[in-house]
Nucleic acid binder design. Structure first.
Lengths: 327, 327
DNA sequence: GAAATAGTGTCTGTTAGACATTATTTC
DNA sequence: GAAATAATGTCTAACAGACACTATTTC
């Protein structure tokens, strides 16, 4: 928006080494023959959804999900990819991301955060394309998926992301190389295909698996993290890497702030909120401790769940006066 | 590097809606006529340096500094800008950043982290340019500055970044708008101009001031942060915003990890380390608590400072077996 | 009354903040 | 011995982990 007022050092127009004023310079400026990349805004859209109620009176399980789109064209034809599209000259990357999100899911009012820009050489076999990746959180009822032009099908995949191995190695140079390998699994049950619009007969369950390696080098002065895809089945481009970084960011945010509230509907119980935390962090939390921590982030209502087969639970809403005091 | 193996679903070549295999498709692919942005890698290079010893036996003060380059051409002729350059098609943005850093400071082994990609429309008056911004930490002796082609002078500016106002407002829609305004000050004492190579007679002290506003909107479902430059004297482009985000990131990292060690030389005392923390965080810390927290991050040596006018101080080094256990 | 979840109480060990005290060196 | 910094000790309040216990509804 506001790119700041430029400082002209008073009224006199400054002249550069060629004797040009800024106006003259800009008038004669030639955008040049440097090669330029395309920049796409790709979105990792998270939600947490409950499976259909199981036995009798138990609570439904909740799982973290990500929206993927099956590619209908080359390259990676038939693979699954993150929704996204190219940034246009008249918009910011943020705006492009918001636009894509609206087009893809119809959802508008969500949490949106820029993640990282991916620029590996050759990451798109067509041409030079960078991806400015975003993470979005939508609440469990924003599931109306509308496939766009580049895709013939969109679906919410259940996600698990789990540490597979962890090793440290002393380098000759004196530093330490810390390698962690994560398994990323994305699963789609066709039973729930009603979410996607069509529901024709296809494979019962689609499972995509990738292994992403995070290599952290720390030597005397230098320090760098590098992500590598070690194996990848069914995910397009470097999207396994993008999804991996997105989950890591999400987990960080959920642990340190009240961000998880963006995954909740209008009214929810503390147990539901705890389930969301657990599904994002992929570990169990102690009830008492969780409630102590969560209570200051939410606002009590006087409503309760009903007819649940057990004691009713108080409903809460996001909010609190102090909303915004996270971090 | 490794963009992942593509899944071809067995030996048969898949054909798209036009009947093309992937190979045929890529052969005929036309990079297209979409307009593309240039992408620059811009660097916020931090260091902490001590001023010359003052009175008699006191310790020198340490201040956080940033490397800026005075622009020798339009636009923003005469203003100060972050070092940076365009990303080339044969390299990643990370590599471009490392290359620029090497060219600009000669330093190679440093901490480098991608910050954010800035893409405001019109942020560069010449043409469509996005900036993929990086933060780098160099230790206090990596001060050999070598100005590049686009610049006639580089210098380390002392930096302060301080909250100026903080207000919350209830929106009609029910959400909350939280506006924090920060004052960014960058100061260069010409007395220390020996750092910059030349040392001709110019103004004694250069001071750049900008005010950056962080607007955090949180409504029912949506949530977004937006940075705006409210005023700006002497900084080129939207670099005030980039620097502001860099300091905020740096402070976060310093508080939550051992990142500050990258700002330290080979050997240092705990008091020096504390000064670095204090200059980055812009607040004083209690000695006892600081030492408790810092000790597990560093490694004792048997060396001590000498002839300091007071009790000698033990020297430490970065390291520890567990290096890498931050976060 | 059985099953299931809701919600609270309490013990313990760790940690951060605050402040006080002792120890060493140089000039 | 004065000035300055180095280094450690201790009290307290807050908090997270762990576990146990009570409460309430539906079938």
């Amino acid at each position: 928006m506001d790119t700041g007022s430029r400082n002209k050092h008073g009224g006199e127009a400054l002249r550069d080494a060629n004797g040009l004023t800024e106006e003259e310079f800009l008038g004669s400026y030639d955008a040049g023959d440097y090669e330029r990349p395309s920049v796409a805004a790709d979105m990792v859209i998270f939600t947490v959804a409950g499976e259909k109620e199981e036995n009798y009176r138990k609570l439904p399980k909740r799982t973290l999900r990500v929206l993927l789109i099956r590619r209908g064209g080359h390259p990676y034809l038939g693979c699954w990819a993150l929704p996204g599209g190219f940034v246009r000259p008249t918009e910011t990357a943020d705006q492009a991301a918001a636009r894509e999100l609206r087009e893809e899911t119809g959802v508008d009012r969500v949490y949106l955060e820029q993640l990282h820009t991916f620029s590996d050489v050759g990451r798109d076999p067509r041409t030079w394309v960078m991806s400015c990746a975003y993470m979005a959180l939508v609440d469990s009822r924003g599931l109306h998926v509308e496939a766009g032009d580049d895709a013939d099908r969109a679906a919410w995949f259940e996600l698990t992301y789990r540490l597979q191995s962890d090793s440290r190695e002393r380098l000759e140079s004196g530093g330490i190389l810390h390698v962690r390998r994560f398994e990323l699994k994305l699963a789609l049950d066709k039973a729930e295909a009603d979410l996607t619009g069509e529901s024709a007969g296809e494979t019962e369950r689609i499972e995509l698996t990738a292994v992403v390696e995070c290599r952290r080098t720390r030597t005397r002065g230098a320090s760098a993290d590098e992500y590598r895809i070690r194996s990848n089945e069914g995910l397009a481009f470097d999207h396994a890497k993008i999804i991996a970084m997105a989950i890591e960011r999400l987990r960080e945010r959920v642990e340190r702030s009240d961000l998880a509230l963006h995954l909740m509907p209008e009214r929810f119980t503390l147990t539901e909120l705890q389930q969301v935390y657990e599904s994002v962090l992929d570990r169990e939390l102690l009830k008492a401790a969780f409630r102590r921590k969560a209570e200051p982030l939410v606002e009590k209502t006087d409503e309760y769940t009903e007819k649940a087969g057990h004691r009713p639970s108080r409903l809460y809403r996001r909010g609190r006066e102090e909303w915004g005091d996270y971090e």
